[in-house]
Design a protein around this nucleic acid. Structure first.
Lengths: 153, 153
DNA sequence: GCAAAATGTTATACATCATAACATTTTGCC
DNA sequence: GGCAAAATGTTATGATGTATAACATTTTGC
């Protein structure tokens, strides 16, 4: 038996949580496969996007934007710094915090990643249809409202 | 500043992958919060559902159904066994494989988990509307088609 | 001026997910 | 029938994502 047919999911495929998780894994896999450069992981991509969109952000601000913990951003920025894509500049007004900037190499890397991401996003649009994709984004935004007050300790 | 307003997401909230991930995290959190009994994690819930729906399944069959690796199911079944919810019965026809069964305690635990899950699912339906929820499930199923040939080594 | 809060950091723990290797058993084929 | 190939459950291991606690330094609030 080269390909065993799917067994009974016992109604799991009618639960939003289960299907959300499966779709998320599929989409992330497709994202990663579409990345031909050095930016591979969605998390790294998101961090670069936020820094590029608001140069000079502190690490805490990036954490609040993306909903991640301060402690977990440290290693991520370390990686991006050792890739030569991000700089931690000292803030003039607050000696505790860093101002994050993309280097020119970082801008180039993000541009490539964005180009690859466009192909990925276009594949999704082709699969769903443009109108359905827009509706999906709205529904996902609504589901995010389930989040209580976001704690970013 | 007790609550810092959201900073610029730089268009991330228009990418399906990012919004899928955020929605999945929100929904999983809500699922976990709605579970009042001992079944807490979505993964455990999914395993119980599949075994309950097809008693006698082997571990490999559960893995193929849920798209998880054989190696990773071992500890999960170990846990469910030590909770007294699942039994590994020896298969009469294949001495390599186990036939998985819910114990009566496992059936009771799953029933409670399902009751709590219904409240969670109803909250989602109230948030989206019944028709939108149905449309969402269809779109998520389509996104799952992005998966190449699933490898379950 | 001083207690309280914020910032980046380290250490740590846990859950999820992946691969490789192994002993045992079954299957497929000649 | 016999034997290579495949399947099954398992162990070990590593990468990733996420969570908390604690700390030194610095800033804020009163």
């Amino acid at each position: 038996m080269p390909y065993t047919a799917a067994i009974d999911l016992a109604g799991l495929d009618q639960r939003v949580g289960y299907m959300l998780r499966q779709a998320q894994l599929a989409v992330f896999d497709d994202f990663i496969a579409s990345q031909r450069g050095a930016v591979t992981r969605p998390g790294q991509f998101a961090i670069l996007m936020v820094i590029a969109g608001s140069p000079g952000l502190s690490q805490t601000q990036v954490c609040k934007t993306l909903g991640i913990k301060r402690a977990n951003l440290v290693a991520a920025i370390d990686d991006l710094e050792s890739l030569g894509w991000v700089r931690r500049d000292a803030s003039a007004s607050d000696r505790r915090s860093n101002r994050l900037q993309l280097t020119t190499a970082g801008q180039r890397a993000l541009k490539n990643a964005l180009d690859d991401q466009s192909v990925h996003e276009a594949r999704i649009t082709r699969l769903l249809g443009a109108a359905s994709r827009r509706a999906l984004l709205k529904q996902l935004a609504k589901l995010c409202e389930l989040r209580k007050t976001r704690s970013s300790v």
